[in-house]
Nucleic acid binder design. Structure first.
Lengths: 249, 249
DNA sequence: AAAGAGCGTACCGCTCAGTGGAACGCCTTC
DNA sequence: GAAGGCGTTCCACTGAGCGGTACGCTCTTT
């Protein structure tokens, strides 16, 4: 799906052929998804196994633990994760709902952490996973604090309708972003996933103008009242921001 | 440090040149660590940047978020992590000490998760990081439930002394392993890091004979009494084991 | 100010690693 | 028993990758 004229490109193509859903893919499927020659996929996959990026099972290939280890060394997300963990922990303990930590990556959110208990609302989000900016609470917060150019770029592109509640009117969304900056929190009400509500607050950089990340609390329609957690989320996010600022003088 | 005759090998060499400690490395340092030609490192690093595995900063290269995303797709650790999270959460809430989840990878532990609060004892462990088997509570548990051949392999090799308390006598360690199987928990008392104590329990496969992972609670010498958390750790680990068994019929 | 060291970048001709089409054997499925 | 899908192996061609060389830059040193 990308440029596959270099060995590295092909290898990455194979690795990225694994969607968030699939755990083990047979060779033929990899050939199909990557569009590469069967022989090439066979050989490269073999190399990847040798390098502990893939595991070869009876039924095909699987992303290996070596990849996990490598990914956890990524500097930015790792330090963010480590510093944030205590605050996320506090937040969870106070709310006992699913807690997310996310950063912006282009026009999407990438979740850096997701913690929750047994009775958590089953959200499609996963650590390392992505979501559109416009239909999630974290996304809205991040978008609200993104540069004006980024914001208009997102708002002028067609906004994908994920559920009947997804806000796809740019004007409406822009209003929500303004309110997010004013109030320090953004909400999502079944806009990305039916049955899920969410509050998010920004983790601001020392300048107070840009968001380096965002924290959210998610819960199911019914028992969950996002507004009642707004303060907790805001507190966690600002505390995290202050701690991050203290680390990098 | 590995085989670097294939492009992929060189690329991996570059990525793995990043130790857990360093966040940004200049080109020259990568050349030094990998032993590759300067031109090659330059070109490959450029390719890696293009593929979102590296970021290029003012002061050098840095492992990028793309790597984090990719690593989080690793099937085994991801599902383990997701299923385990609620149990780890419970355990943390009950103890308010640092909680670890680890799996065995060769003769080392790989930590899949690490959660803790503000007052956590600062351990050198990190998610995605490694530790020797013989000097950690999780390692001992995993070793106790490993195959007999694996166990003797570890015990017959010289055991690295990490601290004055590290158990390096194979007989002594073997005794601890036997006790671990009998009691369902293993302990570590400043054997990997001065000032740290730890209790761990195995997450057993349905057969009840092999451990798929291990859970631990860590705390500082002084206030922390590992024995008093043995039951909580054991409970969390067995509950997790039961849940995992239910998922794969 | 000049010399030096270390850095990132750019160039380029040689060559062998990587390529992908073809063919094979092994399974199901129809 | 034909047909199709699968994983694997083989092999001759070729251009991607290689690494030595060279340049410009910014510091530090003398």
């Amino acid at each position: 799906m990308e440029d596959s004229d270099t060995v590295l490109g092909k290898a990455l193509g194979i690795l990225r052929a694994f969607g968030p859903a699939d755990s083990v893919l047979p060779l033929a499927e990899l050939v199909r998804r990557t569009g590469l020659a069967k022989g090439s996929v066979h050989r490269i996959a073999g190399d990847l196994v040798r390098h502990r990026l893939l595991d070869k099972t009876e039924h095909g290939y699987r992303l290996s633990g070596g990849l996990f280890e490598l990914g956890m060394r990524a500097a930015a997300e790792r330090t963010l994760l480590e510093v944030a963990m205590p605050f996320l922990q506090d937040l969870y303990e106070r709310t006992h709902e699913t807690v997310h930590l996310g950063v912006r990556e282009g026009h999407e959110v990438v979740y850096v952490a997701k913690i929750g208990g047994h009775r958590q609302a089953k959200a499609p989000s996963r650590a390392g996973g992505r979501m559109p900016l416009h239909c999630t609470a974290i996304g809205k917060v991040l978008l609200a604090y993104a540069g004006e150019d980024e914001r208009t770029a997102v708002l002028s592109a067609p906004l994908e309708r994920r559920t009947p509640h997804t806000v796809i009117a740019p004007g409406l969304l822009r209003g929500q972003l303004v309110r997010a900056v004013e109030t320090g929190v953004a909400y999502e009400r079944e806009e990305s996933t039916p049955g899920l509500l969410c509050v998010a607050a920004p983790v601001l950089a020392p300048d107070g103008l840009t968001a380096v990340a965002a924290v959210s609390v998610t819960g199911p329609v019914g028992r969950f009242r996002p507004e009642s957690h707004a303060n907790a989320v805001r507190a966690a996010a600002t505390a995290l921001g202050a701690t991050l600022a203290r680390r990098r003088p």
